[in-house]
C-alpha cells in the first residue's frame, strides 16, 4: 500500500481546509449578493404590483362605471321594449277579448234562437203525442169498459145460472130428502108394526092394479 508522509498529509489537509474556506466564503458572498438581488427584485415586483393594482383599480372603476351605464342603458331599453310589448300584448288581448266577447254573444244569440226553435218543435211534438196518447187512452178505456161490461154481464149470467142450478139441485135434493125421510120414517114405523091384514089389503090392491094395467096378461 502507498503511504504518504505526514507532512504531505498535513499539507493536503491544510490545502483542503483552505479550499473549503475559500468555497465557503465564496458561497457566503454569492448568497448575500443573491439576497440583495432578490430583495431588489422583490421591491421592484412590489412596486410594479402596486402600480398594477392601482391601474387595475382604476380600470375596475372605469369598467364599473362603464358597466353601470351600460346596464342602465340596457335596463332603459329593456323597459322601453317591455312596455312596448306589454302595450302590444294588452292591445292584442283586448282585441282577442273583444272578438271572444263578440263570438260568445253571437253564440249566445244563436243558442237562444236554436233553443226557441227546438222548444217550439218539441212543444208541437209533445202536443201531437199527447193528443195521440189521449185518443189511444180514450179508445182503450172505451174498449176496456165494453169488455169489462161484457165480461161482468157474462159473469153475472153465469153466476145466476150457477145459483139457479144450485138452487134447483138443492131443492131437488131437499125434495128427495123429504121423501126419503118420509119413506124411512114410514118404514121404521110401519115396517114391523103394520097389521098383516092391512099389508094383505095393499098386496091385493097391487094385484088388482096389475090386472087393471094389464101387466099380467
Amino acid at each position: 500500500m502507498f503511504t504518504l508522509p505526514i507532512e504531505t498529509i498535513v499539507l493536503i489537509a491544510l490545502a483542503i481546509t483552505g479550499i473549503a474556506i475559500l468555497l465557503y466564503l465564496r458561497e457566503y458572498f454569492f448568497r448575500k449578493k443573491n439576497e440583495e438581488i432578490q430583495f431588489k427584485l422583490s421591491q421592484q415586483t412590489r412596486e410594479k404590483s402596486m402600480q398594477l393594482l392601482t391601474a387595475a383599480e382604476a380600470a375596475e372603476t372605469q369598467v364599473l362605471a362603464e358597466g353601470k351605464y351600460a346596464t342602465h342603458k340596457l335596463e332603459e331599453e329593456f323597459k322601453t321594449k317591455l312596455e312596448e310589448m306589454l302595450q302590444m300584448s294588452g292591445k292584442s288581448i283586448q282585441t282577442s277579448q273583444n272578438e271572444l266577447t263578440s263570438f260568445m254573444e253571437d253564440l249566445k244569440k244563436r243558442s237562444v234562437e236554436f233553443e226557441d226553435a227546438s222548444r217550439k218543435v218539441s212543444e208541437q211534438r209533445i202536443a201531437a203525442l199527447l193528443e195521440k196518447l189521449e185518443q189511444k187512452l180514450s179508445d182503450f178505456l172505451i174498449q176496456t169498459e165494453q169488455q169489462t161490461t161484457s165480461s161482468i154481464e157474462l159473469e153475472l149470467k153465469s153466476t145466476r145460472q150457477l145459483i139457479e142450478t144450485y138452487k134447483t139441485q138443492q131443492l131437488k135434493l131437499i125434495d128427495e130428502n123429504i121423501i126419503a125421510m118420509m119413506e124411512q120414517t114410514l118404514n121404521t114405523v110401519l115396517g114391523k108394526k103394520l097389521p098383516l091384514k092391512d099389508n094383505m089389503d095393499l098386496i091385493y090392491e097391487a094385484l088388482d092394479r096389475a090386472k087393471t094395467d094389464k101387466f099380467i096378461a
Partner: peptide, 10 residues
C-alpha cells in the same frame, strides 16, 4: 124398502 104392499116382475 117397499114399506108395505108388493112389487111384481113379469
Amino acid at each position: 124398502r117397499l114399506i108395505a104392499g108388493a112389487a111384481l116382475v113379469c
